[in-house]
Design a protein around this nucleic acid. Structure first.
Length: 574
DNA sequence: GCCGTTTTCGGCCCGACTGTTTTCAGTCG
């Protein structure tokens, strides 16, 4: 199996940790971390890029040296330099750095003085009281280490955006209702609308002497106050989520919002532009010498470095700065651009509502059309439709459409792609549908080449229109199946097949990087909710978030079209 | 180790909070 980008990135991260413990040049350490980030977030696999003879050193933050190291890792699965370093600095030390409050310096001291090289060693030493005697440590530090190591359960999982929204909404209301508080806004990856968030970053502006800091640390859901100062406070909630609160004066609102929204890589890039112009940019504003020349709004900050406003979803340092400089930022798709939903279930299979109820809910969304895509017969647990039941549903939809006002129900299906690449129902019934949505629902563990062939073969069928949830992943629950999405996108582009961006917050499949790739390859996409009830139609906004992160414009997405144009586009020879 | 519309060498974003200190290193975001 080819080496994954994540594995390469993990190797670079570990290398960075160990080098940092060895007190290596901090800029060299940073270079490995930057390289890891580039590899991890690259839409294409290093393995494939090398097969295509691409020059990896053209990737940002990858130079000659890292390009060569990536090649070695892809070819051998290992990196000699890392093995050499591990021979003198145990690799488990990088695990110790995951304990909050332990960085490279302290880990090094623990190893040199007490030979601590594992979490077990650390726990024993903390209990024995030896740590407090070390220079630079003390009672409190030892106490904290003891608590942290006892409760350490690996890296905290990231929270899905939809759950983060629930946690954030109550907290934001609570903070708003505080004397002297003006703005309360959730920044960070939440504002960049990432599919998952690691913690919540909340920015507050206040008039003088607001008690907001105390009110925050007194919040009922707070489990532990990690740190608390005049302008910044960090807590852990009972749910396990970390929340950072930052308080700034209103005159700094834009600069603070920019700083706190990130991403870190984007901020660094913008600050570097500032340095070139002789400015210093921090969370309080843009400064020329000691004079604040901007910072009330984010627009002001960008203006000072010669850029137009960049929407939060693009701020990942994935080319948005260069695009902004050259005036070629995409005109990102908006929720209002969506004219209908192309993947919805009814109670004929595993949905909860009737055709009529779904249609009515579609009208409330302001849609022109909504398609019904119940499962096909192979998905027996979902009571999938066979030929007879599908033909009955088609008749029912035709009859209902005569009575419906303001919306048209489209006749479709979520059709299983069988293991051999054939479709789950015969062409004789598929031709009665407006279009099809096809998907893989079993045999996720086929080899990469077999899974790819399976889908390519399905696309050969003239009735194949849209590939639903193309990677099959469930966020935090199921990894994507092994498949060559680039080949599938090439085929989709040739055969005018559509790739779905499944908007369900548990799926959000394709990922943002894959959406970027589809756009670059000229593949059209649909954004659909996979609704199993009327309320699920609201998931569209998560799909839009993801699409915007993937640089998609309305013209890249077929369900921004009116019904007539849509039908024309979905008609294939057959 | 990366990078360049001032540079192929000499830079590399910037600030808050804690604990252990007596002026600041370490960690974090």
């Amino acid at each position: 199996m080819p080496v994954h980008n994540n594995e390469i990135a993990d190797i670079f991260e570990e290398l960075a940790d160990l080098l940092e413990i060895e007190d290596a040049n901090p800029f060299r350490v940073r270079a490995y971390r930057n390289g890891a980030r580039t590899v991890r977030s690259c839409g294409k696999s290093m393995h494939d890029l090398l097969n295509q003879k691409k020059d990896l050193s053209t990737l940002p933050d990858i130079g000659e040296d890292l390009a060569e190291k990536i090649k070695v890792i892809v070819e051998t699965g290992k990196l000699p330099l890392l093995e050499e370093i591990e021979s003198r600095t145990p690799s488990a030390l990088s695990d110790l750095m995951k304990i909050e409050g332990l960085g490279p310096k302290r880990v090094k001291t623990l190893y040199k003085e007490l030979r601590i090289k594992s979490l077990d060693d650390l726990k024993r030493a903390a209990l024995s009281g030896k740590i407090r005697e070390l220079k630079g440590f003390g009672r409190k530090t030892e106490q904290r280490i003891r608590e942290r190591v006892e409760h350490f359960a690996g890296e905290a999982p990231r929270t899905r955006l939809t759950e983060a929204e629930e946690i954030a909404a109550t907290l934001v209301d609570y903070l708003r209702n505080t004397e002297g508080v003006k703005d309360v806004i959730v920044a960070g990856s939440y504002r960049r609308r990432m599919e998952t968030v690691g913690d919540l970053d909340i920015l507050v502006t206040t008039s003088r002497n607001s008690p907001v800091m105390d009110r925050f640390s007194d919040y009922d859901e707070v489990d532990e106050v990690v740190s608390k100062g005049k302008t910044r406070c960090t807590v852990h909630l009972r749910s396990g989520m970390q929340v950072d609160l930052r308080v700034v004066p209103q005159v700094s609102y834009g600069a603070a919002l920019h700083y706190f929204t990130g991403s870190k890589a984007h901020n660094i890039a913008v600050r570097k532009l500032g340095v070139k112009k002789g400015y210093k940019i921090n969370e309080y504003g843009v400064f020329r010498d000691d004079e604040r020349i901007a910072g009330r709004t984010e627009e002001e900050v960008y203006e000072q470095v010669g850029l137009p406003y960049i929407p939060p979803e693009l701020r990942e340092n994935r080319g948005e700065i260069e695009a902004a400089r050259d005036d070629r930022l995409p005109e990102l798709i908006r929720l209002e651009d969506i004219r209908g939903d192309l993947h919805c279930h009814s109670n004929a299979s595993d949905g909860h509502h009737s055709l009529k109820q779904m249609a009515k809910a579609g009208v409330e969304c302001g849609y022109e059309y909504l398609s019904i895509n119940d499962h096909s017969r192979h998905v027996t647990v979902a009571h999938g439709l066979d030929k007879k039941r599908l033909l009955e549903q088609i008749k029912e939809i035709d009859k209902l459409n005569e009575r419906l006002d303001g919306i048209v129900l489209l006749k479709s299906i979520e059709l299983d792609i069988l293991e051999n690449g054939s479709l789950d129902l015969p062409d004789s019934v598929l031709k009665e549908l407006d279009f099809t949505v096809c998907a893989v629902h079993y045999k996720f563990n086929l080899s990469r080449s077999k899974q790819t062939q399976r889908i390519l073969r399905a696309m050969d069928n003239p009735y194949f229109n849209i590939l639903a949830h193309p990677s099959g992943r469930l966020i935090n629950e199921r990894e994507p199946y092994e498949v060559d999405l680039e080949k599938i996108m090439e085929a989709a582009s040739e055969r005018e097949c559509i790739l779905e961006l499944n908007a369900h917050p548990d799926r959000l499949d394709l990922t943002d990087e894959r959406c970027m790739m589809a756009r670059e390859m000229g593949v059209k996409m649909s954004i659909s909710t996979d609704s199993h009830s009327t309320s699920d139609l609201d998931f569209m906004r998560f799909g839009i978030n993801q699409a915007r992160r993937g640089w998609l414009e309305a013209k890249d997405v077929i369900n921004t079209l009116g019904l007539a144009e849509l039908k024309k586009l979905l008609m294939r020879d057959g």
